[in-house]
């Protein structure tokens, strides 16, 4: 489905949320709802998005929505999907939304169950690379080197931020052989919305992992959200890919990556990184891309 901004509805199904200025999460959600429309049942986990949209008396979703317990987005939408089927509700989309912690950490078991059963839902993981709602703690999606309040940095050098590479959700979900799994970025809205449109028209569990930069947690000015999201892709530290019918497709493969410093150095969470750290990150990136390209080629 080719997306033309001019044809999209001006109707907002998410509005007035108390997200920080420049937050990437509502970009992903409002654009997804542009595609999915008013007949969408939304289930958001306990997260920034939950905490900023549904605090009585204000409710910012204009479609049916519920907040799930932190580990339970996937299981709650599984029940919703069964109910929609049993009640014979036509053309209703069940949309689960969770952050990286609610997906890759505490929500992973239920997500695995969902994918294995292939319940008919769309699951969006908006990834801001840490537990932002509780105040920037490290998640398993926090990238190597990143400072968070629980992956601190000190002057003696015994603490250098996050020490592990991030968990690869795209691989984990696609290993369940779901009908559709994709990565996306809020900085590439056309690509993201095309993926949501594709997911809407498929039966079974569809998973879209969207990179959604966080000015507060990453430490950059609020107007730079789209810019940093784009730089993540251009430096090869994030990627746009799809898994469908057992095949991996790369939607965008930069011929030459921009230097990782251009993305990392201006962010407060990476400002302790040194030249040798950038080299480590570049090596990790190249290894990851070698695997990714091999998968895409097979």
């Amino acid at each position: 489905m080719a997306i033309n901004y001019k044809d999209l509805s001006d109707e907002e199904l998410l509005y007035g949320a108390k997200t920080c200025p420049g937050c990437g999460a509502p970009i992903a959600v409002r654009l997804a709802l542009k595609i999915l429309g008013a007949r969408t049942f939304v289930c958001v986990t306990a997260s920034c998005l939950g905490a900023t949209t549904t605090v009585y008396p204000q409710t910012s979703f204009f479609v049916n929505n519920a907040i799930a317990a932190f580990p339970a987005t996937a299981s709650t939408i599984a029940g919703m999907s069964a109910a929609v089927e049993m009640q014979g509700l036509e053309d209703v989309t069940i949309l689960g939304i969770a952050g990286d912690g609610g997906t890759a950490d505490i929500g992973l078991q239920a997500l695995s169950g969902l994918c294995e059963r292939n319940d008919n839902v769309i699951f969006i993981c908006y990834d801001n690379e840490a537990y932002m709602n509780t105040g920037i703690q490290r998640s398993s999606a926090t990238p190597y080197g990143a400072w968070t309040t629980t992956s601190p940095v000190n002057e003696t050098g015994t603490a250098k931020g996050e020490t592990r590479i991030r968990k690869n959700l795209f691989d984990i979900v696609s290993a369940h052989r779901v009908p559709y799994c994709a990565t996306a970025s809020t900085s590439y809205p056309r690509d993201f919305m095309e993926k949501i449109a594709k997911a809407k028209n498929l039966k079974g569990t569809k998973f879209v992992h969207v990179h959604a930069p966080c000015p507060t947690g990453w430490g950059y000015p609020s107007e730079k959200t789209i810019e940093y999201g784009r730089l993540a892709v251009e430096t090869g530290l994030w990627y746009l890919a799809e898994y469908e019918n057992g095949k991996v497709t790369l939607n965008l493969a930069p011929k030459v990556f921009k230097p990782v410093e251009s993305y990392l150095a201006p962010q407060r969470r990476f400002r302790h990184l040194k030249e040798e750290d950038f080299k480590v990150i570049e090596k990790q990136r190249d290894e990851e891309w070698a695997l990714l390209k091999a998968k895409a080629a097979s």
Partner: peptide
């Protein structure tokens, strides 16, 4: 959680 999700839809 799943029974709750279904209860949310009546």
């Amino acid at each position: 959680a799943a029974t709750m999700g279904a209860a949310m839809i009546g």
